[in-house]
């Protein structure tokens, strides 16, 4: 069960510069675990305490996974996953 994952520039340090990588998994969480086994460090940039990080956007076939079930989103063979860090900021301090 292969899924293609598009990796943003800032995270290509974990994929040897590759812009797309392949992975497997029935859910997004399983896919991220699979990617971590070959691209150590990647998971921590996507997930915090078992949940997707607030300022990382993940899309499955062009749908934001926040509306699909977040890290529990089901994946099928041939799905396409895109990771994009949020473009965000602002004058308030957190």
């Amino acid at each position: 069960m292969a899924v293609e994952v598009r990796i943003p520039t800032i995270l290509r340090q974990y994929t040897g510069g590759a812009k797309t990588v392949e992975g497997t998994g029935d859910t997004l969480a399983a896919l991220i675990d699979d990617l971590e086994s070959r691209h150590p460090g990647l998971r921590d940039r996507l997930v915090e305490n078992g949940s997707l990080r607030r300022f990382v956007n993940v899309y499955v076939n062009d749908e934001d996974v926040r509306f699909l079930g977040a890290e529990k989103t089901q994946l099928s063979d041939g799905d396409s996953v895109t990771v994009l860090p949020a473009v965000a900021g602002g004058s308030h301090s957190r």
Partner: peptide
């Protein structure tokens, strides 16, 4: 270029801006 405005403070990156900056180029 990635631009945004600050509407009540100076045009200098806030801690939020720095923490969320993900395009080093």
């Amino acid at each position: 270029v990635i631009y945004h405005s600050h509407t009540a403070t100076e045009a200098y990156p806030s801690r939020t801006d720095i923490g969320l900056a993900n395009e080093p180029g």
